[in-house]
Every structure is written in structure tokens, then in C-alpha cells.
Nucleic acid binder design. Sequence first.
DNA 1: TCTAAGATGATGTCCCAT
DNA 2: ATGGGACATCATCTTAGA
Length: 597
Amino acid sequence: MVNSKGYIGEIFASNREIRNDWTNGSEGNEDFEWDSDDEATTGDVVPSSESLACPPGEGCETGPSRSAMVCHFMGMGFSEDMIMKAIKENGEENSEAILEALLTYMSIGTSPSEYDSIPRDLSVLSNKDEAHDNPYDRVASVDEELFEDFPAEDRKLLILVEMGFPTNDASAAIARCGPNASILELADSIHAAQLANKLDDNLGVSTVSSLVEDERQSNCPRGAESRFAEVTRSKRRCTSTEDEDSVISFSKPMVGFSLPNQRMYMVPRKISEAAIGPPYFYYENVALAPKGVWETMSRFLYDIKPEFVDSKYFCAAVRKRGYIHNLPIHNRFPVLPIPPRTIHEVFPATKKWWPSWDLRKQFNCLLTCISSSRLTERIRRELVQYDDPPPLQVRQFVLNECRRWNLIWVGQHKVAPLEPDELEILLGYPRNHTRGGGMSRTERYRSLGNSFQVDTVAYHLSTLKNLFPDGLKVLSLFSGIGGAEVALHRLGVHMKVVVSVEISKVNRDILRSWWQETGQSGMLIQFVDVQELNPHKMEHLVNRFGGFDLVIGGSPCNNLTGSNRYTRIGLEGIHSSLFFDYWRILDLVKCLMGRTS
DNA sequence: TCTAAGATGATGTCCCAT
DNA sequence: ATGGGACATCATCTTAGA
């Protein structure tokens, strides 16, 4: 199915193959500029200027003088000068060596001019003190020169404290190991001391310290009580005769392995042989699921511990989610432009009406339903009775409802729920992504409330960009409105193939129309139900495309979320049990790819 | 038959006072 | 340690009206 302009596209629905109408222009796309490259030539596709993650004002014009390689790295935030230098030294073929060189330039940062060219948004830089392969020295510290004025010993103490170690433990370790000890040695020393203390504390007690358990399970050095690093704790009941269950809890704050532009030590993680790709996979669901759910999902997904991240660090709305994945976690970078992280910055017009006593800076989690008009009217009626500020009781009532329903101030005494297009902005989708195409207003709210926060997911997926310069073959389960696809596109990652599964017709239509509008030259294949993907069909798909590079999806949270008052019954629920289809299909792909490779 | 509005808590976590 | 209050949460069900 190749149209006259070289576009390849197919749609399968259920077991019936649906011919894609747009390939012959029947949906009024005559004025659309199709990419003239066919699939075979899209490996070195130059991403569109929209898709490239270029800093604002440093638009990445893909002119004749600037190669795709340069644009590619500029998209990561490196300056053109640095990139040219790196290419000159390493040759244009070896993108990995170029990236290494660019990171090295940054870590050296010898001249002011070089400092000027440090990417503002690169998340992970290397510590100047330590060798690059030291896991503890992966520190994102654009302003680490803050420590430069201190003597070496004090600097190490500060770094250790910054890592989250107690000051006493840090200085004791320096005393033990001597002033010449590396950060890694010091961290290990603290870790060992803490371990010993915990063992002492727990002698004769029925619980063993989580630290011990971490040590046993991961068999890798840990950043102990890091305030920043994601740490999952396991507890074990020694008295239990049956299978001891472990408990996963989130770190505070919920930042995952790393955040863009934060000083943060990367915790080394070790994943089991069975978990290692290909394919890479990425699974998402609500962080605040009933107890035991994440433990179960983790167990099925090859014992990888979830990375819990709150999207409030990426946009102006809270969104606490857990992600189980086997992606590399070093050298992540965010998509640009970096979205605003406060309500006033995202919606400046509301500032005029925002009362001083409403101190919200960010929205709560964007849900699938909105408040009733009766509530906003009741709030207005309450407020008009009083001067500003109203009595405490009224303030409390209004603030509670504003927080509960994410209301914004749109006039004197007037609050309103967020509009669908405002949700699109907050979640990182193109404007009008869910508009039209048969979507009702209610359906827009539902689909957006159920979707990925694109900036968050893109940050995690960013490491794939260098691994797959020719593009990715993606299996996208529970695609929804295409959060994964939008994230990859915004990263400038080419999608050679996307096999997408989505039960909702309007959502499938949205993804398909976005696929067209953004001029994707890859192939989109859509299925309706994950349960259609039986071993036979999966074998066919894997053989046809030579496997998948990424299996991505977030299964329904309906039976897990706290918003559900009726059927919050965990993974047994009719919707959330679809997690097991995610696992089944992923495992199938792994088996098939293992067999064919 | 469809859409939208309106009414409907429980389960956790965190914090602070005791 | 512990108890109580504050707070947040990718939703579902019933009903009214077009």
C-alpha cells in the first residue's frame, strides 16, 4: 500500500483489514505535503524543525550547510560549535563517540566560552572529580562550580550530603577512608556502615532492614538514603511461612532516577538478564495504586523496580505515575521547549483574576471528569457576598473545590474548569490534538485524562534517540491518543513502524489523523483489541518487521485509581487486568525475537 | 439512543501534636 | 510510637433532556 507520493500506511481493525482511505486522498488531503521518502530511505531522515528539540531562538533550520547529524545534536541542546568540533574529531559516522566527546567538553568546561555553550537542558553531566565510568559521579550539576571554592575534603563532604547521606556519616567516612578517597569509595563506606548499623538494630527483631533487602536483591552499590534518587524499599517478614511479600514505596520527592537540570546522583541499577532487551519496553500506570499492585506488576515485568515520577517536575500539573522499563537511564535529555511549571506561566490571563489567598502554583492531577457548572455558580454566589478576602470558612470551601476540580479563575469571583485545549497544553500535546474528528467534549476530557504527560515520557524515552538513529519499530499498546508517538516525534525520533492497539475508535482516529498531519513516513498499523494479538498474529508481526525495538504502553488504571469509588479492586478488575495482556504480549515479543535472532 | 450533568467515598500518605 | 486531621486521586453510576 504505497500511495502515489510514497506513503505507506495500513490499518488493521479487529481481524478485518481496513484499507486506509487517506492513502488515496479520499479524506481531502490533496493539499498535504507527503514526505517523498519511502520507508527504505527514512533511516537518515532529517526531522522537521517542529520535531527537533531545538532551544527557542536557536531554530534548527535544516539548510544545506547543516547536516542532520548536527541538527540531531542541536536538538539535544548542544551548541553548533561544540558539535562541529566533536564531529571533526570523531568522524560523522560514530554518533556515540560524538556524544561522548560532547559530554566530555561539557564536563571539562575550561573556558567561559565553552561554559556558555553548555546545553541548558541536558540532565546528566559528569562529575569533574571522578572517572566517567564511576556510577556515583553521574551528577547533573550545571552549577556544580558552587563547590569549587571549597577545599577538596569539604567539597567531598558537600557532595555526599547532596547525595542524601547524613552529614555525620559522610564526615565519618572521610575520616575512615582518608582525604584521597573517591566519592564512590566514600559512598560505599557509608553504605557499609549503615548496613552494619541496621543489622545491629534489627538483631532479634522480626523485620530485616530494607537496606539489607536492597543489597540482597540488587547486589549493587546504593546511594543509601538519597533524597533525590529513586529508592524502592523491600520489606520481608521473617516470621512468614509463605512467600514473603515485598513492599514498594516511592521516594520523596517523586523524581525517578533523574530530572532535567537537577543536581542529582544517578543511582546505578542492575536489571536481570531476562529484563534486558531487545526489545526495550516501557510500562506506565498510576503510582497510587492499591497496595501490592506495583509489587505484582514488577514481579511480572522481570523484577524491575518501578521508577515513580511526578509530572509536576515537567509541567504545571501533578501527575504521579510509576514506570517500569528497561531503558538506559543515563544521558537523558528533555524535549524543548521546556514547558512552564506554574499555573501563572501557562495561563497568564488567569493572573488578573487570581485571588491572593489562592496559593496554588500547580494543578492537581488532571482527571477524566470536570466539575459541574452548578458548583462554579455556587462558588460565585458565595464570593459575591463578601469583600476580598472572604471569611476563612468561605475561603476554605472555595479552595477545596478549586483543588479538587482544578478550577481556574476566569473573572471576578468566577472559576471554571480547564478547557480540553488547556489540558492538551499541560499534557504536552499539540493544540487541537483531540479536537474534531468526532470527539465529543466529554470524550476529549476522558481521553486526555487517561493519557501520558508527554514531556515526562519523552524525557525517559530520550535515550533511544542515539541508540536508534535510523528510527524505531514500535509496538504501542493501549495507545490512547498517541502519547508515546507524540513523545517520540517531539524528540525527533523517527518511527519506522508503529503497531498500535487501541480499543476506542475516536482515539484511533486521533492517532491516525495526527500521523498524517505530521507527515510521518513510517508505517502505522492499528488494532482494536490487545486480545487479538495472539501468538500467531504476533509471530506474523515479528517476522514481518524483524521484531520491535520498543514495546510501550500504559494499561487501564480504572480499577487502581483512587478516583474510582466503585470498582477499585486492583489488578483483578475488568479493566486493569489488561496489564496481563501487556505482559503477555511483551513476553511473546521477547520470546519470538529471541528465537528469530 | 446519546450526551452531559450531578451525586457518589474509600484508601492511602503525610504531617503534626501528643 | 501513635492517633487524628488534611489532603489527593488516569472514575462510575444515575438521571434528565435532547
